[in-house]
Design a binder for these strands. Sequence first.
DNA 1: ATTACAGTTTGAAACGATTCACGGCTGGAT
DNA 2: ATCCAGCCGTGAATCGTTTCAAACTGTAAT
Lengths: 334, 334
Amino acid sequence: MSVSVKDVAAAAAVSVGTVSNVLNRPDKVAPATVARVQAAIDRLGFVRNDAARQLRAGRSRSIGLVVLDSANPFFAEVARGAEERAAREGMAVLLGNSDQTPSRERAYLELFREQRVNGVLLTPTDLEDGAVRRLAESGIPLVIVDGELPGGGVPSVAVDDVQGGMLAVAHLLEQGRRRIAFIGGPRSIRQVADRLEGARRALAGVPEATLEVIELDALTVLQGRDAGEEIARRSPAERPDAVFCANDLLAVGVLQGTAILGEVRVPGDLALIGYDDIDFAQSAVVPLSSVRQPARAIGAAAVELLLEALDSEGAAIRHVRFQPELVVRASTGR
Amino acid sequence: MSVSVKDVAAAAAVSVGTVSNVLNRPDKVAPATVARVQAAIDRLGFVRNDAARQLRAGRSRSIGLVVLDSANPFFAEVARGAEERAAREGMAVLLGNSDQTPSRERAYLELFREQRVNGVLLTPTDLEDGAVRRLAESGIPLVIVDGELPGGGVPSVAVDDVQGGMLAVAHLLEQGRRRIAFIGGPRSIRQVADRLEGARRALAGVPEATLEVIELDALTVLQGRDAGEEIARRSPAERPDAVFCANDLLAVGVLQGTAILGEVRVPGDLALIGYDDIDFAQSAVVPLSSVRQPARAIGAAAVELLLEALDSEGAAIRHVRFQPELVVRASTGR
DNA sequence: ATTACAGTTTGAAACGATTCACGGCTGGAT
DNA sequence: ATCCAGCCGTGAATCGTTTCAAACTGTAAT
């Protein structure tokens, strides 16, 4: 079927060992031989069989990436960053979506182990669960993306979500808002919990301010819209005067939801701020204030950490932590 | 290092062949033996080495996906659809971004060949180029995503972009617009060329209508914004009264660009329609009319076709063609 | 008692690359 | 002449799985 080193060796009148050397350590082979072998490779259209290479050499050339939802623009950017960085090393990225479901996460991790990936970048569905720790100890290099394992010990790249939550709510308070609502997904998602915690801390300095927490099932536009409608239907006295959403998708949804009844205006009646600063935040009906995360850089950094872990077996474990950045737009204007 | 079939065989007191059979054809093995081997597998934590499996068995369990830009929401959805469908078959998806660059496309295809992927789903940078045809003939199963190879012969899943362009412009004409502008990326992108062709056909029936073509380098929000600003700066007489953008990102950009000067209003002065109906189209400053493509279904269908091609070596080559759907919102209102 | 047969299990070959101990060659030093 | 050191190149062993012909077992039919 396909051309193997043996064929190439025959065509170039050398041994298979030499072909392998041309492929992997050209400097150890006489230039003339290299040229001859290369010519044979080109002529026959030889393509290295990575399975065999991997089997013998141990190492593979792919890394696994498991995110909560790759259709979410934030994760799409993270994936993009990882893919670009990996490509520079000649590595391929295997993509998996856990949809926040531990069973799907497990299925992907298992599949990736079978594929003998070099390592896994994981946005865990549940950091507290022992599964992540066990995985880390099972020998497969692991980097936590957008989170940090409580006990340390596993390299990770994260954004300080508590800080991000503080930034957002501090900004709302600064604008004179006092009746804050936090709209988020399930608190079991660490990012959500941390952003809420940040909100709480920002409120600590302002005793007369209140915080209402609205918990949803998922961080989607649709869920946000429902929450927005619910708020719009309330009497003005019971309505918050500012909403901090756990991500931009929710915020966009809230914007739609409040717009439907047409009574609550953003930012007049309701200041609104999201999280992630996805591309569309600035293009929303009312340009959306948000907290920016360097998504692409996060993906790239994760691959970087994995490469480090691969190079220096058991060396220092690094944690990269990006700082979030407040982006003010019309939705929190006066 | 890691546990192999040999270890499992020893632990269960059977031969390696039997272990393999338990793994691949449990029905050929006596139930009691299956149980014993399974127990050993669980106890030892055996994970099948896919490299070895692949080497011997020929087949692999991954498929490659090369798209123009996975951060583009349309392709992100396509990727999601592909990934979901592949996961159902226990297959993993390798993701690659060509960024419309033939050299990056080639690099990924080469990498994927080395990985011995089962097949490749490709959104080609250049369909006319012989490279795609050569690839298809090189033995690696190929499915064209969002396009169709002129000569046939390669399975493909596409959306009728000409039809989509017609829908969009026919709608603009119906709204009484006559000075239409088409804003698109490089015409070398087939999708762009087809949508433009559709626009032309729609115009054919209305002699007094005109079409201006504005060609950009890329289909991004930023490029759209520049184009929008340029249009906004024109005198009213030289301005189109409707714009059809080759995708929603451009349309969102145009919306931003025209808004900056504040003189051109959408849809009053300028009707605007995009393409793809990404999630944010309905949440834009002015909810955006668009042409919807079933992105996730496209990805799933592509995997489906690949599986068919894999099963029935050289059987009928199918082309799946989805129909685009017009979605009318405020941006093309009166 | 012999043969047939289906159901199980075995064990060695094969997949295609990498690795490494070893041998041949060349040319300069002794 | 002899020896040594560097280069180059060789080819068998190896990785972990699948495959398949052959061997084995016990039961049924003759």
